[in-house]
Design a protein around this nucleic acid. Structure first.
Lengths: 111, 111
DNA sequence: CTCCGGCGTCTACGTTGTAGACGAACGTGT
DNA sequence: ACACGTTCGTCTACAACGTAGACGCCGGAG
């Protein structure tokens, strides 16, 4: 039945980064946010593919930014996480957090 | 080069559950721990497949339990997370935690 | 105009997540 | 002892997710 639309880890990161940006996030900024926080590079392909999948699942939406009077190249979209996305995110987050409870020390002792 | 052996979410759960069991965990108990904490069912296939992949990546090891004098069916293994596994787990965890910082309220407000 | 660089799209493939079929080992009732 | 249900690890096959890089459009610099 697969009622559980579980999120992959990268999907979670993308959504969290959008939320960090205040829910009206430009793609580029979201991507930078992830690279900064997770301390790794994110290829364009990985990023946009994930964004598109999230959109198809109804976890993320976007609105075209009204272009300023000067000509703008390409679409300028602002992304937001839907309620459904928030719910999924919260569930995943809670599940992992529950399992991680009390293990901080154990994890930190790794080199 | 794929130097980044990023963990999938379910893989993380499995490792966390092993750690919760004190690092000498029986498969069955690990599985139950996950089902309890994440509040969802875990099929045998999903579970053992993941365990085997983690082992192949050197994140998890196991030792045969010395069978009591009575005959035992099948292998009785105790699983443990390796240092490498702990490190990977810690990194993933930190990355997500960083991105989630300050978003608790935002997440909770979802129905 | 031609080259360059940024950025979104597309394509293809490796990795992870998942269910279910299968089969060995045990306990039970008869 | 035999047939049967149960339990649990293994195997198989496929869906979903993660990822890199090629491509092409557009605007700016020379």
């Amino acid at each position: 039945m697969t009622r559980r639309s579980f999120l992959g880890e990268f999907e979670q990161m993308v959504m969290l980064a959008i939320l960090q940006q205040g829910d009206r996030a430009f793609a580029l900024e979201v991507r930078r946010e992830i690279e900064r926080s997770a301390d790794r590079s994110v290829s364009r392909g990985a990023f946009y593919t994930t964004l598109e999948r999230l959109e198809r699942k109804g976890m993320v939406t976007w609105a075209e930014e009204v272009p300023r009077d000067e000509a703008r190249s390409g679409p300028l979209r602002r992304f937001a996480v839907t309620d459904s996305g928030r719910r999924a995110l919260r569930d995943s987050w809670n599940a992992v957090r529950t399992l991680a409870r009390g293990l901080d020390d154990v994890l930190e002792e790794a080199q």
